[in-house]
Simulated assay, not measured.
Amino acid sequence: PGPPPEGMGAIVSAHYQQGSGDAYIPCTAGTIKNCTSLSAAEVAEAASAPLPFNIEVGSSEPQVLIMHTHATESYELEDLGWFDPEYTCRRTDTSLNMVAVGAAIAEQLNAAGIVTLQDATLHDYPSYNGSYERSNATVRGYLEKYPSIKVVLDVHRDAIETDEGRVKAVADVNGRTAAQVMIICGADKGGNLPNFKQNLSFAAKWESAMESRFPGFTRPVLFDYRYYNQDLTTGSLLIEIGSHGNTLEEAVYSGQLVGEALAGLFTTGA
């Protein structure tokens, strides 16, 4: 694209590679970026442990819950190469925000015989503050009603800015542009995430399932002292689908790929 029109900002494409060096721990096809004080050996041991839950493929009982703490996060609707600074990157229309991306993931899982529920609550609207407290209550409600749920996925998008402009994180998958994805797994701090190593095992296997099927699709797993309600199950993770520079079409396509890889992990183990 040429330079943006007057008053508009530039959108720049970027592709993030898997990491190397002391801070990155391999997990078969992908890597884990270790931002904690845990040793690489301890992280690798946790990552290599078996999945801490058993997904019942073909069961009529829900196995997976997809929800959105920041449901109104949204994307560009066209690939123009520039953005309007007045656009807040948030929409309440669930066909244009994170709910649409989560629906693409859920569709793949349900088609594979893994009963998946999606909650479309706008936890960040009308108030952004308190979003995680509200989504925590939502998830607890589902777990109480459906104790068969083993996995809770909080689906977001990232927001990446550089001196050159707003970034769209991209990968070429099967000849189409996809929004790159990143799993975030929290580490325990003061007892807030006692099951974090089990979540990390899941994160490592999901990362590897995506990267082995679609090379270049993922960014390294971010393993850091985050909370994100990841104490509620042993399969609780947050995933970022692209950034605010990506288009909705790219993000929904990535949702399909994410769901396809996750369905493969749960049905074949890889």
Rank of each mutant, 00 (worst) to 15 (best):
L238C: 13
V258H: 01
M182Q: 11
V101H: 00
A23P: 00
G113E: 05
I55R: 05
L109C: 05
P147N: 11
E45T: 15
I66A: 00
V252W: 06
Y16E: 15
Q118W: 02
R91H: 02
W82G: 06
E249A: 15
S74Y: 01
Y228F: 15
F53K: 08
N34T: 04
G141C: 10
R226T: 03
T88R: 10
L262E: 00
Y128D: 08
P126Q: 09
E76Q: 15
D22Q: 11
Y228E: 02
L232Q: 12
S243R: 02
E42W: 03
D163Q: 12
F266R: 05
A100R: 11
L122A: 06
T138Y: 07
T268F: 13
Q18G: 09
V64R: 01
P3L: 12
N34E: 04
E250C: 09
L193W: 03
A106N: 01
R90W: 00
A46Q: 05
D119A: 13
Q180P: 10
W82N: 13
A100T: 10
H70E: 10
F196K: 07
S59W: 13
A104N: 05
Y253E: 01
R134Y: 03
E164M: 13
V64H: 02
H70D: 06
I11L: 12
I32F: 05
T268Q: 11
G242A: 06
Y253I: 04
P194D: 12
M182G: 01
N129G: 12
Q18M: 13
Q17L: 14
L143G: 09
